[in-house]
Amino acid sequence: MDFLRPASWEEALAAKAEHPTAVPIAGGTDVMVEINFDHRRPEYLLDLNRIGDLYEWEVGEDSVRLGASVPYTKIMENLRAELPGLALASHTVASPQIRNRGGVGGNLGTASPAGDAHPALLAAGAEVEVASAARGTRLIPVDDFYTGVKRNALQPDELIRAVHIKKADGPQQYSKVGTRNAMVIAVCAFGLALHPETRTVRTGIGSAAPTPVRAKAAEEFLNAALEEGGFWDNGKIITPSVAKRFAELCSAACNPIDDVRGTASYRRHAVGVMARRTLTWTWESYRGTRRASEGAA
């Protein structure tokens, strides 16, 4: 095995171009487990720890450009206002020690259907910025990034530079089912974001299909129902039948399997419950801010 230690982003891309089989290692919280257990013996490890750019984030007008290696702890501490869904999801990852090392770039690299960043990214709306020495930079919409179980849209010579995530324009929530609070890989998970500016709702489902997915039919149903009822303007409580139908459609978007963590039918059920709850939480919060701003006006 060879240990490649590029000192800059350009050097990293050059190394990846020269050795396309090289396995990038950032926080190592996925890679090292595989090496420790002899599940993986890469020819080259490509260390990304020395590339400072990957640990930085920039808050722009509409989005946050989050460096691939920014650890979950930093997201929780610094980006709760801009990226509430991702900050909540980050807080559910493993333990403090793991959150101090692991980040969204590694979560995307592994592309596990159970990865906690994914539902939050899907719900918020995001693009993955990847680059190669040969072809430069391209932006992949996060919806197109997950291509199969633990597969993603990266080419062998590409690395993830950053993720561009839309800044929250309304309440966001993240919910996860597991046996306890810490150190739990999701049995299933659900992310929801209200986007009052566009009067839309977006979702993300984790661990209930071969890849992280959005519940698009559920989103469309809810968008139409909220529009028809004038809910965005009148700020009324969402009709129980609407919430129920939304939950059913979210369950229907799942394509889960039975495994050690849970059965397919439990996952489908739990996703529906989380969909209804997160909708209630976010909508209540939206109504609250509406009332507050009306009160101020």
Binding site: F3, G28, T29, V31, M32, I35, Q97, I98, N100, R101
Partner: peptide, 8 residues
Amino acid sequence: PVCSCLVA
């Protein structure tokens, strides 16, 4: 604080 078993 990190898990030293996961740092290369």
